[in-house]
Computed example of a mutant assay.
Amino acid sequence: MDLATGHPPFCVLLGPDYSGKSSALDQLARTTPQLCFLSVDDTRLAPEHALIGRLRRNVVKDVAPHRGAWSPEFLATLLQTAVVHLRDQLLRTDAGTPVVVDSYYYKLLAKCRLAGAGGSPLLAWWRTFPRPDRVIYLDVPPETTWQRSRQGADLNLLEHYGPRPDRDGFRRYQTDLARAMRDEIQDLPVTVIDETGPLEPTAAAIREVLTHEFG
């Protein structure tokens, strides 16, 4: 653990919806067991932390479809459970184990901004959380991620503009999401990986960055 900061060294893997982060993390976890991988994906949550997954699903199911019934700050409050969980898990990680965090707070913060909660003091608090040594950004164009979403069939209401998914609403939302995320990480060391091809070369490129960063 870095005694000056109180947390182990860590990098963040970031990218738009359907950028391939989860698949890359799964590949890296199989081939780089010396690293710790933190995510709020259901497959990476311990049984005692299953509440985090249920809350995320309920946000999509119960809050996003009825935004007029809930304030943007309420949405941010629910999403904060995932953000604080990642921070807590990071601070509990063994001192000698470098960490890779899936999205950290940056993606959820960007989504909260797009939902209208940009002025919430919750977001200002998130920005005080430990800063990563590096952000690895998977830069995937909306045209590619639209195909990966099965032309919108797999989308939820926090992944596109409009009441129903269509190519234009998805493209505009993902463009704004990418802009908001890049705005949040502009003062951090960032490595951009163009991710449009097979999983293995992408995972290899990420692994190379992590090896250089962690030594």
Results as ranks from 00 to 15, higher is better:
L123E: 02
G118K: 04
Y18E: 05
E73T: 14
A82R: 12
A124G: 10
I52Y: 02
A69H: 13
L86V: 09
G68D: 15
A50P: 02
V63H: 00
A64R: 10
L38M: 13
A64L: 14
G53L: 05
E73W: 14
P98A: 02
A24I: 15
P47G: 00
P142Y: 00
D62I: 06
E48C: 02
R127N: 07
L91T: 03
V99K: 01
P141L: 03
T43M: 04
G68E: 15
L35E: 03
Y106G: 06
Q80T: 15
R67T: 06
K107A: 05
T43G: 04
A29L: 12
W126D: 04
L28G: 03
R57E: 13
S19P: 10
R44S: 04
K111Q: 09
Y105D: 03
F37I: 14
S120W: 08
W125A: 13
L138I: 09
L109I: 06
Y137W: 07
R113V: 14
Y137G: 01
V100Y: 02
F74Q: 15
P141K: 00
F74I: 15
L122D: 07
G15T: 01
I136K: 01
Y104D: 02
L91A: 01
S39V: 14
V60M: 11
T77C: 15
L108C: 08
R57I: 04
D88S: 09
Y104N: 05
L25M: 11
V99C: 06
F74W: 12
L55A: 12
P16C: 07
R92I: 07
D94T: 04
E48F: 01
V84T: 08
R57M: 06
D62H: 14
P33R: 08
E73V: 15
L138F: 07
D133M: 10
V12P: 11
G118C: 06
E48W: 04
W70I: 06
E48I: 04
A124Q: 13
R134D: 03
L13D: 01
R54K: 14
W125C: 09
R92P: 03
Y18G: 00
V101T: 10
E48H: 08
A46V: 00
L13Y: 05
R131S: 11
P142S: 00
Q80W: 11
D42E: 08
R54N: 11
S120I: 12
W70A: 06
D26E: 15
T81A: 15
G20H: 03
V101Q: 04
V60S: 09
G15P: 02
V135I: 08
E48L: 07
A110T: 05
G96V: 06
H66M: 10
L51T: 14
